[in-house]
Structure formats: structure tokens, C-alpha cells
């Protein structure tokens, strides 16, 4: 709240403002970051373990193991979302569970499950990408611009 606005308030209101500010629960930024770090790191370490699993038992290289790893992570996220565990993790970890692909999977899958009662076409089909849609849109558009600029720069600018 800006100071100028506050001058127009009565003394009682000003007092209340101070009182409110004191009592307002501050977001525990540091604690949240710590949690996000550990849970996010843990999810990535699990991903690393899965990619080593694919490399060791199948003919995947470090380069190609990424795709099956991502698919497996999304699968795990489906199970955890379905039994309601992922939401608990998300409450605890915040961005730590939202930023990895499992969070992307969770957003899609939970929306699909939630809107199932509205039918498969109108419910599941059209609500699935409610949150993930913006990620796909901006990701795709940004990638288009970046790739276009780079291609033009390399082809005609002689860069690269």
C-alpha cells in the first residue's frame, strides 16, 4: 500500500494497517525454497536412475535415454496423481514438484480425472490442457521464434 493513500486514512485505520501488517503471515520463502530444492532434486535424481536403467538394460545411449525416461516419469506421476499422493507432495514442495515434467504430467492428468464426470469429450478432452496448454503455447511459440532467428542468422548472417 502506497504511503500517499495511507495519509487519507483516519488514525484508527492507520493503526489497523500496522496491526494487520504485523499479523500477516509472511511467506516462508527460504523454507519453501529449501523444500523445493530437495524435492525437485530428488525427482531429478529418480529420473537419472531411470535413464541409467534404460541405458543398462536396453539399447539406449545417454542421448536417446531422455525420451523413455520422460515417459516413465509421466507414468509414475499418473499413478501418484490417481491415488492422490502427488497433491500432498505438491502442497509440501511447491515448485519442487511443479517444475519437473512430473508436474506437467500432474497438471494434465489431474485435470483429466477431475472433469471426467462431465463426459469424455466435453469434460476430459477439453479440460485436459487447462494449465498445460499455456506451457505448450508459449513453449512452442518461443521455440519457433528462437529457431527462426537462429536459422536466419546462420543462413544469411553467416553466424555460427
Amino acid at each position: 500500500m502506497a504511503n500517499e493513500k495511507r495519509k487519507n486514512l483516519t488514525p484508527v485505520q492507520q493503526e489497523y494497517h500496522l496491526f494487520e501488517k504485523e499479523r500477516e503471515t509472511k511467506r516462508p520463502v527460504f523454507k519453501n525454497c529449501l523444500r523445493a530444492f530437495f524435492v525437485g532434486g530428488l525427482i531429478c535424481a529418480v529420473g537419472q536412475a531411470i535413464s541409467y536403467f534404460y541405458m543398462y538394460f536396453f539399447d539406449f545411449t545417454e542421448q536417446t535415454a531422455g525420451n523413455p525416461t520422460v515417459a516413465t516419469m509421466v507414468f509414475l506421476s499418473m499413478i501418484l496423481t490417481g491415488i492422490g499422493v502427488y497433491d500432498r507432495i505438491a502442497q509440501f514442495a511447491g515448485a519442487g514438484s511443479a517444475v519437473p515434467v512430473t508436474g506437467f504430467g500432474n497438471a494434465v492428468i489431474s485435470a483429466a480425472i477431475e472433469h471426467r464426470t462431465e463426459g469424455f469429450v466435453l469434460g476430459v478432452g477439453s479440460n485436459m490442457f487447462k494449465l498445460a496448454g499455456s506451457v505448450i503455447l508459449f513453449g512452442t511459440f518461443a521455440a519457433f521464434v528462437v529457431a527462426l532467428v537462429k536459422t536466419i542468422a546462420v543462413k544469411w548472417g553467416g553466424l555460427g
Binding site: 525454497c33 523445493a36 530444492f37 525437485g40 531429478c44 511447491g94 515448485a95 519442487g96 517444475v99 519437473p100
Partner: peptide
């Protein structure tokens, strides 16, 4: 991975 999540947080 942890650091990227912290940036998000």
C-alpha cells in the same frame, strides 16, 4: 534439478 526448482519457487 534442485536449483531450477528453487528458481521456480
Amino acid at each position: 534439478g534442485g536449483i531450477i526448482c528453487v528458481i521456480g519457487q
